[in-house]
Simulated scan of single mutants.
Amino acid sequence: MTEQAIITGCLHNDPSAQRELYNRYSPKMLSVCYRFGQSREDAEDMLQEGFIKVFTQIHTFQNKGAFEGWIRRIIVHTCINFLKKHKKFNESVDLAYANSLHVKEETIPSIMQARQIVECIRLLPIGYRTVLNLYALEGYSHKEIGEMLDIEESTSRSQYTRSKAMLEMILIRKKIIEKPKEDFNWLAALKNK
């Protein structure tokens, strides 16, 4: 079934088109949810809420840009709303620990597997993880992140800097890397994982 046939079918509430849309895009979108969620169950709940929104809002898709990108934006916003709703974003962060880290604008070798990186990102406190995901992986600006999370732009910047430092320490501690050698652009490679 073509993408346009899926969209048309979903606009007419055709269950086979809805099933096809879900089967085609849910694996990638689950990985997006997994990066934001505290657990697999949270990620699955986010995914379910996100696809309900996709199906109820499909009439707003205007064939401008990629359909997958449109779905991804809905899923990301659903994840953020889920975290806010369940007050998971406001969990405390050990700022003393984060401030004591030396931030290096360096990264891991390109041979690093995406799964290991995602697992290490999931070890970050939820606030750090959320900002890191939104900025480095989803491409939002610090201003947009501030608006989405109801925080100052400067808070988004500092959370991102601290998250990179903490992530680097986790990667070193887990012996995934010995010491970083390049800049943090490797995070962008996770976008489609």
Rank of each mutant, 00 (worst) to 15 (best):
Q38S: 13
Q38G: 09
S39L: 08
E41V: 02
D42W: 10
D42I: 10
A43S: 14
A43T: 00
A43F: 07
E44I: 09
E44L: 12
D45L: 14
D45A: 03
M46L: 13
M46T: 10
M46C: 13
Q48V: 13
E49R: 15
G50D: 04
I52A: 12
I52S: 05
K53S: 06
F55C: 02
F55S: 03
T56A: 02
Q57G: 13
Q57D: 09
Q57S: 10
F61V: 05
Q62L: 05
Q62P: 03
N63V: 01
K64Q: 06
K64M: 01
A66F: 06
A66N: 11
F67H: 01
F67V: 05
E68M: 09
W70A: 07
W70P: 04
I71A: 01
R72E: 06
R73A: 09
R73K: 07
I74M: 04
V76R: 02
T78Y: 03
T78L: 11
T78N: 09
T78I: 03
I80D: 12
N81D: 11
L83R: 01
L83F: 02
K84H: 10
K85I: 10
K87W: 06
K87D: 14
K87Y: 14
K88P: 00
F89I: 13
E91S: 06
E91P: 02
S92Q: 09
V93W: 04
D94V: 12
A96K: 11
Y97Q: 12
N99M: 08
N99S: 09
N99G: 07
N99I: 02
L101I: 15
L101P: 06
V103H: 09
E105P: 00
E106H: 14
T107I: 00
P109Q: 15
P109V: 13
P109W: 08
S110R: 12
S110K: 15
I111F: 15
I111L: 04
M112Y: 09
M112L: 11
Q113L: 05
Q113N: 08
A114Y: 00
R115C: 01
R115Q: 13
I117H: 12
V118T: 05
V118M: 13
E119I: 07
C120R: 04
C120N: 05
C120S: 15
I121D: 00
P125Y: 02
P125H: 14
G127A: 11
Y128N: 05
Y128I: 01
T130L: 01
T130F: 01
V131R: 00
N133I: 02
Y135A: 01
A136K: 10
L137V: 15
E138H: 04
E138F: 07
Y140A: 07
S141H: 12
H142L: 05
E144P: 03
E144I: 08
I145H: 09
L149F: 15
L149G: 08
D150P: 03
